[in-house]
Simulated assay, not measured.
Amino acid sequence: MDTREQIIQESSKLLNRIGPSSMTMDMVAHSCGISKRTLYEKFPDKKSLIMECLRREHERQNAEMRHIFETAENCFDALFQVFTRTRSYLQQTSAAFIDDIKRLYPELHAKHREKEKEFVIGLSQVLAKAQGEGHVMPNIDTDIAAFLFLSTMRNLNENERLADYGFSRVQVFEGAFLNFLRGIATIEGISYIDEFVNNQQKQ
C-alpha cells in the first residue's frame, strides 16, 4: 500500500470514530507513522483529505450495493443485507460525523443532499421489482414510498432531537426500516420480514 492510500484509510477510520472536527492532521500523521510534511505533500489541507475520504466511501458503498442487488435471492433479501450493513456502519460511526460535515463543510453536505434523488429513484425501482416478486402490495406508489422512507431517514442526522427522546441512531434506523417494510408488504412479505427478525434475534 502506498503512502496516499494509507493516509486515506487511516483518516477514514478517524473520521468514523471521532468525527471531522476532532480529527487533526497531527493525528493522521501519527496514525500513519509519517511526518506532517509527508502528509501535506499528499493532501494540502484537512478539507481536501476529508473530501477524498468521502468520495472513496461513496464509491465503496455504491460498489457494495451493486454487488448485493446483483447476487441477492430477491429484493427483500437485498434490502435486509443493506439493513445489516447500514446498522453496522451506524454503530461504528460517530454521531458527530454528519453534524460536523454540515457545520464545517456545508458544500460537502450539499453534495450529499444532491445524491438523495438518486437514492429515491433507486429505492423506488427496487420496491417496484419487489411488487413483481409478491413481497410489496401492488397498490403502493413506490415513488412516494421511497420519498417517505428518505424523509424518515433524515431524522438519523438530528442528534439533538434523538437525544431529547432518549433514542440512538441505531434504534431509530431499525424501527424506521422494519416498520416501513411492514407497512408496504404483502402477507408473504411480512412473513419474510418476521423470519429475518427472528433470525436476527437468535444471533
Rank of each mutant, 00 (worst) to 15 (best):
D2G: 15
R4D: 06
Q6V: 10
Q6I: 11
I7R: 02
I8G: 03
S12H: 07
G19L: 09
P20C: 10
S21H: 09
S21N: 10
S22L: 13
M23H: 06
M23C: 13
T24S: 15
T24V: 08
M25D: 06
M25S: 06
H30E: 14
G33H: 05
T38Y: 01
P44D: 12
P44E: 14
C53S: 07
L54T: 03
R56Y: 03
H58K: 13
H58S: 13
R60M: 11
Q61E: 12
A63T: 07
E64N: 06
E64S: 10
M65Q: 08
R66C: 09
H67S: 15
I68W: 02
T71G: 00
T71K: 07
A72C: 15
E73L: 14
E73Y: 03
N74M: 01
C75Q: 09
C75R: 10
F76D: 00
A78R: 03
Q81A: 02
F83K: 07
F83N: 05
R87K: 15
Y89L: 13
L90H: 00
L90N: 03
Q91G: 14
Q91L: 13
S94M: 08
S94I: 07
S94V: 11
S94T: 06
A95V: 12
F97G: 05
I98M: 14
D99N: 11
D99E: 14
I101M: 08
K102N: 04
L104Q: 03
L104I: 12
P106A: 04
E107Q: 15
E107K: 13
K111E: 15
H112W: 08
R113T: 11
K117V: 11
G122S: 09
L123M: 15
L127C: 00
A128S: 12
K129W: 05
A130I: 02
A130L: 03
G132L: 11
E133V: 07
V136Q: 03
P138S: 13
P138W: 00
I140L: 14
A146I: 09
A146D: 10
L148C: 08
F149Y: 12
S151C: 09
T152M: 14
T152R: 11
N155P: 01
L156A: 05
A163I: 07
A163F: 05
A163L: 11
G166V: 08
F167G: 03
R169F: 05
Q171F: 06
E174I: 06
G175N: 15
F177Y: 15
L178M: 11
N179R: 08
N179G: 07
N179S: 13
A185I: 08
E188W: 01
S191T: 08
D194V: 01
E195V: 00
F196D: 01
V197A: 06
N199Q: 14
Q203P: 00
Q203F: 02
